[in-house]
Amino acid sequence: MRSMNKLIVAMTIITLGGYAQLAKADYPSAVGESHPDFALPRIDNGEAVRLSEFRGRRVLLVHFASW
């Protein structure tokens, strides 16, 4: 994936079924259920970010890898 465009293309592909068959049943949570909260460090400064900080806003949570 060499560009954001390619990233978006790849992400769009998975909506059509690319890797979706590999997705585990319990992660992410099913549509309509509360998404599990978590805290992880940022890659740039190590600062902790918790998903629940974003309550009150819509969030697009993107799991990806630069490879």
Binding site: L7, A10, M11, I14, T15, Y19, A20, L22, A23, K24, D26, Y27, P28, S29, A30, V31, G32, E33, S34, H35, D37, F38, L40, P41, R42, I43, V49, L51, S52, F54, R55, G56, R57, R58, V59, L60, L61, V62, H63, F64, A65
Partner: peptide, 29 residues
Amino acid sequence: LHDPINKLGVDAVPIIVEIDESGITKSIN
């Protein structure tokens, strides 16, 4: 965010999750 140990238990990438203002999963991919 960095999850090198796969603490979240993701089975594949990329996966996109749309979460609404209340923290409810609205759609996947």
